[in-house]
Simulated assay, not measured.
Amino acid sequence: MNILDTLHAVAHAYKGGCESLAPRLGMSAAVLRSKVNPNTETHQATLMNAVQIAEMADDDRVLEAWARERGYALVKMPNVEACSDAAIVELMGEAWSTHGDVGSEICKTLQDGRVDMKEVDHVEKKIFKHAQVLFSIASRLRGMAE
Score class of each variant (00 low, 15 high):
V120A: 10
S84V: 02
I106M: 13
V80P: 14
A95G: 04
D58F: 01
E81H: 10
A45T: 08
K126S: 06
V115K: 11
C83Y: 02
H99W: 01
W66D: 07
D116S: 08
G103E: 05
H99P: 03
R61W: 02
A30F: 01
V115E: 06
I137V: 13
A86K: 15
V102E: 04
C107V: 12
I53E: 09
M27G: 03
Q132R: 15
E41M: 10
Y72I: 02
E119I: 03
F128E: 09
I137L: 10
I88D: 05
M92C: 08
A30D: 12
R61Q: 11
A50H: 13
K129I: 00
S97E: 11
M117W: 04
I106K: 10
P38I: 09
F128W: 06
G93M: 07
Q44I: 10
R24M: 11
D116K: 12
V120K: 14
A73I: 06
K76R: 14
E41T: 13
A86C: 01
D58Y: 00
S84Q: 04
W96V: 09
D59H: 07
E119L: 04
A65F: 08
C107Q: 15
L63F: 12
A138S: 13
D85G: 08
L25F: 03
K126Y: 01
D59P: 07
A87F: 02
I88A: 05
E55V: 12
A50Q: 13
V123I: 13
K108P: 00
E64D: 15
N49G: 06
V102A: 05
V133A: 04
A54V: 02
W66S: 12
L32T: 09
P78W: 01
V62P: 07
A45D: 07
C107P: 01
H130G: 00
K35C: 01
V115G: 06
M77E: 12
E55N: 15
E90Y: 03
T40Y: 06
I127T: 10
V62I: 14
A65C: 08
A138N: 11
R114F: 02
L25I: 07
P38C: 06
A138E: 14
A57C: 09
V89E: 13
D60K: 12
A138F: 05
G93T: 06
A67V: 10
L63Y: 10
K126T: 05
E64F: 05
T98P: 02
R61M: 02
I88Q: 06
A54W: 02
G100Q: 05
E124G: 04
D121L: 03
H43E: 10
D101S: 15
A57L: 01
M77N: 12
A30I: 05
R33N: 11
H130C: 09
K126G: 02
L134S: 08
A29N: 10
E64K: 15
I88E: 07
M27N: 05
T40R: 13
S97K: 15
W96Q: 13
A57D: 00
L134H: 09
M92T: 08
K35W: 00
T46N: 08
A57F: 02
E55A: 14
P23A: 05
L134C: 13
V75Q: 13
L32M: 05
S34R: 15
F135T: 12
A29T: 06
E81P: 03
D112G: 03
R114H: 07
D116Q: 09
D59I: 07
H43I: 00
E119M: 04
R24A: 09
K35D: 01
G103W: 00
Y72Q: 08
E94C: 03
F128T: 08
N49Q: 09
A138C: 08
A57V: 01
E64T: 14
